[in-house]
């Protein structure tokens, strides 16, 4: 065997362990191997009980997120060779989520938060779908395109200290997803999303640490989306103060909560 690297992996079986503990495994250090390859190697060759999620192996499905040396990463996009100098590489489940087993986290709360922001096109006016599609210019598509790249990997939740402090905080990906629909020219649902977004557990919970944007493998920039929404809300609030009649309209767009 050529060069190798030692992985410390968090193991946890709810029926046996009170708390997660670390176990070490030595795996070959291959240039083309990512952390997920090492996990697969361990599962195939050393300990078949190791439990983790993965599917696409190419940064699309978003299921292989783990903490690597304390940083939220996609297991399939993190090369072992970048840790070659280190004695050990620690692989743990994504922080701030309940652990189901080993590296698998419980996503129920995250999925509920996603659903809360109504991430679908809300439209009651205009032509019915069967009468044809809603047209959109390339510029209108560009308005939300980047925000639509999210793969729900939850890395941003593990990076966000506010998520760690306040379990009710809606969180980066869900707010970015809400903005993805708010900025879609076909959508009319911004006002409905306001109740969730312009709230202490929504955008105002964010203290602009910015880690979500730094760790996002899809360059969604959730922190930017949240700040944009804050600016919109603040402007709408002042607009409502000066021109109360316009308040309704701007609230529809930005969701100021100036009641």
């Amino acid at each position: 065997m050529g060069e190798s690297i030692v992985l410390e992996i968090a193991r946890y079986s709810p029926e046996r362990d009170a708390e997660p503990h670390l176990e070490t495994y030595e795996v070959p250090l291959r240039k083309e191997w990512v952390v997920l390859d090492a996990l697969n190697h361990i599962k195939d060759k050393i300990d078949g009980s190791l439990t983790y999620r993965w599917s696409c192996r190419m940064g699309i499905c978003g299921s292989c997120g783990v903490m690597v040396n304390g940083e939220p990463k996609l297991g399939c996009a993190t090369f072992l060779s970048s840790y070659a100098g280190r004695k050990r590489v620690r692989v743990e489940p994504l922080r701030y989520f309940p652990i189901v087993r080993d590296l698998v986290t419980e996503l129920g709360d995250f999925l509920a938060k996603l659903k809360k922001v109504k991430p679908w096109l809300i439209r009651t006016d205009g032509p019915l779908l069967r009468e044809g599609e809603y047209l959109q210019t390339p510029e209108q598509l560009d308005d939300y395109r980047q925000l639509s790249m999210c793969i729900n990997c939850t890395l941003c939740y593990s990076a966000c200290p506010v998520v760690g402090l306040d379990a009710l905080f809606v969180g980066p990906a869900a707010i970015a997803l809400a903005q993805r629909y708010n900025k879609d020219s076909r959508d009319r649902g911004a006002k409905e999303r306001t109740l969730i977004l312009a709230h202490p557990d929504g955008i105002w919970g964010c203290t602009f640490v910015g880690e979500c944007t730094r760790v996002c493998p899809q360059h969604v920039d959730p922190a930017g989306a949240i700040q944009q929404y804050k600016v919109g809300s603040a402007l709408a609030w002042f607009e409502g103060l000066i021109m109360p009649k316009k308040r309704r309209k701007t609230e529809d767009r930005h969701g100021a909560a100036a009641d």
């Binding site: 312009a198 202490p200 105002w204 804050k230 600016v231 609030w237 002042f238 100021a256 100036a258 009641d259």
Partner: peptide
């Protein structure tokens, strides 16, 4: 109360 105050307070914060 918090809800209605946050937007102007944040505006003061950012300016």
């Amino acid at each position: 109360m918090l809800r209605s105050n946050e937007a102007p307070l944040w505006a003061l914060f950012s300016t």
